[in-house]
Design a protein around this nucleic acid. Structure first.
Lengths: 189, 189, 189, 189
DNA sequence: GATGAATGAGCATTCATTCAT
DNA sequence: GATGAATGAATGCTCATTCAT
């Protein structure tokens, strides 16, 4: 693994465990097996490292998700894939998923330009927007639909982490939760 | 105002704005109009201050909510009050609400004994558990129902903050969201 | 016990255990059962408390010693009593004795006027000076004789503390040490 | 000079003059010509610095002494060298010698593992033990002999510091004191 | 690129001391 | 006299960041 990647993955683990403030750059460097100076060679500041980690993680998740979403043919399948594979990713990479939320509620979020954040969610938003316009989803603000869908995912994640279930049971619950969410958002008739 | 209370309310504002690490105790003291030493007279450490603020805020919210919940006669009214007034409180006191989430995703959460956390949510859990046993809600784990309901609230909060709506519009959306949530969880038939 | 005395005796114990710097006035106050303010009512500063404790302890030791010394008729008995009862006091009140040495090697010593220190040792010095002039002790500077005698006492104290002996054995060793010291200082012939 | 050495030697001077507590690390750093951070780069805590200074000083003294002791052929010469050169070292490096005693009566002593302390005095103890077993010294506990010899040295040091004598006079008195100590400890016959 | 010694601003915390009650 | 809340200067220590090698 190259040094930059080693620093990023070490930082992720430590940030999740000790928080941003609780993780000195020196500790990241030591555990990543590089010198203190090298860390700053790759990332000009600690904040820049945090933000880079956020962008990378978000992109990984998005790349993974869109591959899965695009496997769906009709909208419901696409939406189900978005929902289900978000959770599968979260369950498979709990540290990454936790980090995204941790970042979201830290002052570091302010360091990411609004347009970058928009870009990250743009594809999701477009997908949902289409469903609203097509009359599949209830006639609600797309933002609201997106936010509600995302918070369902976050809630489910927390539940899955809290209750240590076997893989089968997990999958079943995820599917049930999808049905709930779908029934909640879909236009009756 | 009491000095201890003044410190707490100042800390809240600054923590929300600058984060825990970004807020020196000296700044809290100055803005609260007390000396640096006085802050440590009331709170042995900065961490203790953060946790005390969390406990106080959580208790205020709970006290407010249960008053409202108990005004409902049948379960649906109680649940609606829980949902709606959580959001009204969040909208009326956005800093407090944000702080609770900020705390939740910080390493400070680990400083609160698990039993204290359980105590905070115990009443909500009981209410929902009753609804599951009475066959009102779908036969799902209470934990899951609680988590999903809470994440709806969190999602709605984020939406309401992001989209600056007039009060009337806000109330309308909150009610619509409640209907969605209710329809999602309630036992069909 | 009156408050001032209670503060002094508490301070002694804590100073010996934790050092001057390691003992906050607040801790002294709490353990002495008085308020923080009261301590400063009796002693204007912490330094003043330390010095007062030194003076009191030194005076107690001197008072005790001179009673014993004066029970001796000839010089050798007086000197023996000085030697032996110094050690008996040290063994009976190890904290007080340790405190005197601790004080001696701390910067607080500089706070005691030279004349006060001289006054404390004046009586001993006179006694020894007489013995030199009478030809009992070798013709050495009185200061040297005093210092050597005192350091024998200090050394013996350290030995007695280090090796936990029974009372009888202690007394025997003290007597042997006196004989050594006597033989060292006395004029042969 | 090496930065670490510069810090140590500066600390020595300041500790002797102002005491441990009376010497802020910032002052040590400034006077040693290094930054505050550098001090903590070399010594993790202030306490660690104090202890390191003690160990270094003790080792220097021991190294010096054993060179001198080994120059003696028979025991009496070895013992005389130990006594005389201890005092010569003390007179030549009064700050170092004072520091050792200051340390001895401070709570920092407790930070040195008992085995380290034993190691420092081990060689002296062995030398004396041999003399007791060979019947040269009186049949007293080695510990007692060691302690008495050491306290003679300490006492002499204090006397030499208090009375400002010329070098010749100093040497003469040191020799006289050695004779006294020798006569005190040696087996008559 | 890589290193790690050096830096010094910044912060949490302590504690002697004051003073209104 | 007694109290203890309030003070704020002082200090040990951390840690992001720099830079000479």
């Amino acid at each position: 693994m190259d040094k930059s990647a080693s620093i990023l993955s070490t930082a992720l683990k430590l940030f999740v465990q000790y928080g941003f403030h609780g993780t000195p750059t020196s500790k990241i460097a030591v555990e990543a097996g590089v010198s203190n100076g090298t860390l700053f060679h790759y990332f000009k500041t600690k904040d820049e490292l945090v933000v880079a980690l956020y962008n990378q993680t978000k992109e990984e998740l998005n790349k993974y998700l869109f591959e899965k979403i695009n496997q769906g043919e009709v909208f419901k399948d696409k939406f189900r894939n978005m929902f289900v594979y978000s959770l599968k990713w979260a369950v498979a990479r709990p540290e990454e998923f936790f980090f995204l939320q941790q970042f979201h509620f830290s002052p570091h979020l302010a360091l990411v330009p609004a347009e970058d954040i928009a870009k990250h969610s743009q594809q999701h938003t477009q997908l949902l927007e289409g469903a609203v316009q097509a009359g599949i989803f209830k006639n609600l603000p797309t933002e609201l639909i997106a936010t509600l869908a995302l918070s369902q995912i976050n809630g489910m994640y927390e539940f899955l982490v809290k209750c240590d279930l076997c893989t089968d049971k997990k999958e079943q619950i995820i599917n049930e939760a999808f049905d709930l969410t779908w029934s909640m958002l879909v236009n009756p008739q």
